[in-house]
Amino acid sequence: MSRAFVLVALALAFAAGTWVGGWLGVVAVALAAPWLLRTLQPVTLGLGAAVAWLGLIAAADDGGSLGRLLSRLGGLFGVPGWALVVVAVLYAFLLAWSTARLAEGLRTR
C-alpha cells in the first residue's frame, strides 16, 4: 500500500472522526487505526490528523469568510491570522501522535 494512499485514507478517517466526535474523534481514530493496520507509525497518524484538520479548515471557507475570520482572530490574539491554522494543525498532529505513541508503548510493554 503506498504511503500517499495511507495518508489520504487516514486523513479521511480523521476528518470523519472529527465531524462525528470533535477533537475526541481524533483520539478515537488514533487509537483505532493501529488495530486495523499494525504497521502504522505514530508520526504517520499525526500527519493524517494534521492533513484532515487542514482540509476541514480550508473547506470552511465560503467566499473569503475564512480569511476574514483569521484576520479578526489574529487581531484578537495578537498573532498573524495564519498562525491560528498552524496551531490547529499542530494540535491535531500532536494529539494523534501522542495518542498513538502512548497506545503503542502500552501495547508493547
Binding site: G22, W53, L56, L66, A88
Partner: peptide
C-alpha cells in the same frame, strides 16, 4: 480542543 475543532469549533464560524 473544542475551540480548534474545525468541524464544530471556531473555524465553523467561517462555514
Amino acid at each position: 480542543g473544542p475551540f480548534l475543532d474545525p468541524a464544530h469549533g471556531v473555524f465553523a464560524v467561517a462555514r
